[in-house]
Simulated assay, not measured.
Amino acid sequence: MRSPNRWAMLSLGMAAQGAGCVFMYGLPFLLPTLQAELGLTLAQAGILVGAPSAGMLATLIAWGWVADRHGERLAMTAGLALATAFLTAAAFAAHPVALGVLFALAGASGAAANAASGRVVLGWFPRERRGVAMGWRQCAQPIGVAVAGVLAPLFTGVRGTLLAMAAICAVVTVAVGALVADPPRTAAARQARAASPYREPALWRVHGASMLLVVPQFATAAFALTYLVHARHWDVAGASALVAAAQFAGAGGRLACGRWSDAAGSRVRPMRRLALVNGAVMVLLAAAVATPWGTPLMIAALVVAMSGNGLAFTAVSELAGGAWAGRALGAQNTGQNLVAAVTPGVVGAIVAGPGFGPAFALAGVLALAAALVTPSERAPAPAYAA
């Protein structure tokens, strides 16, 4: 029987990941609308848009287990179908609490794509091409956010935008269920019971550095639109278009970082260097928030903050090995989304108090700390085994 085309599987994995990202990470585009329609403060609206990430925390490792035991296609199809249902219900919710609960449930369901699509990509690509492949897969997040940025001005209010997001999830659910082929698993791989990779500090350190790097990523992603509108006096449509363009640039950055890591034969060395750049740009942005330089520095910070995400995921899968990859990727996502869930609310509170400068400065300091936490080079990781 002819093997499926690996690039087709990559495309479907990206589609699944992107459909979830459209609502999980695209909701910040609705911050001004949520405040206007529901009468929320910026901090309250920030908590609301962080609800999908909070929902993911409860299910990422569980979805990884489902993918390990029952296949990636089943996990992604079931998760996206549930997310479609919860988003549709959220479109008709009138109370902020109900909306937050439904957002959390949609995030808990959409977590299946985060946990399983990485295994689809990693299972079909060899190690020497995996950095680029994972870079493509991680492009799904900025592309999904960019799609959300395009959708937000096109539809009327929260309801219309949420229904559009639900429709995207529904279409991708059908495509994934019909076309995804699970990576082959040998009998030996299925029976493997490798020693825990968490006995060594390297995997813990990659998790920790990734969690620190979530703060600048979400500080910029969640509040770029608000900063441009309120501090730099852009109109909402123009600011949305600019932020959407930055998402595409960030997608290109993820591809470039993936190719960089393949050429270097290392994931952690590029990850450390990019964290240093990330911290420097955030500190410069903090110093320039009240100047015309704030706008280009915000866009630069957006691009840099999202560019290295695929490096960490590839490093985690390779450090964990095939027997632990699903659980390790689930733990990686859990740690990142734990920070992502609280970052919008905390940053929103700082912005509402001391202002944008201190909020962005804190994010920059944490990015610099991530460079210190990232593990040093080690012997080449074993090839991924499905």
Score class of each variant (00 low, 15 high):
Gly50Asn: 05
Glu37Ser: 10
Val171Gln: 06
Ala188Val: 13
Arg272Ile: 10
Phe86Cys: 05
Met56Thr: 12
Thr156Leu: 08
Gly13Asn: 13
Val22Gln: 09
Ala189Lys: 03
Pro28Leu: 01
Ala219Val: 06
Arg193Ser: 10
Ala54Cys: 11
Tyr227Met: 07
Gly79Arg: 07
Asp235Ser: 07
Ala288Thr: 12
Trp136Ser: 15
Pro153Ile: 07
Gly345Trp: 00
Arg159Met: 13
Gly364Ala: 02
Ile299Arg: 03
Ala140Gln: 04
Ser376Asn: 12
Val180Lys: 00
Gly107Cys: 08
Arg267Glu: 05
Gly118Thr: 13
Phe248Met: 13
Gly26Leu: 09
Thr314Asp: 07
Ala15Tyr: 08
Thr291Lys: 04
Val304Pro: 11
Leu255Gln: 12
Ala352Asn: 01
Ala363Cys: 08
Ala219Phe: 06
Leu38Cys: 08
Trp7Phe: 14
Ala112Gly: 15
Gly26Asp: 04
Val304Gln: 08
Leu151Asn: 06
Ala104Tyr: 05
Phe23Leu: 08
Ala91Gln: 04
Val243Thr: 15
Pro270Gln: 05
Val373His: 01
Leu30Cys: 06
Leu297Val: 05
Ala288Gln: 10
Ala241Lys: 09
Met298Asp: 08
Val243Phe: 11
Val145Cys: 15
Ala244Thr: 15
Pro52Asn: 01
Met134Asp: 03
Gly55Trp: 06
Leu151Lys: 03
Val101Gln: 08
Thr161Trp: 03
Ala341Trp: 02
Gly310Arg: 02
Ala221Glu: 10
Ala75Cys: 08
Val365Thr: 02
Tyr198Leu: 15
Ala106Trp: 02
Ile61Arg: 03
Phe223Gly: 04
Arg327Asp: 09
Ala241Arg: 15
Ala116Gly: 03
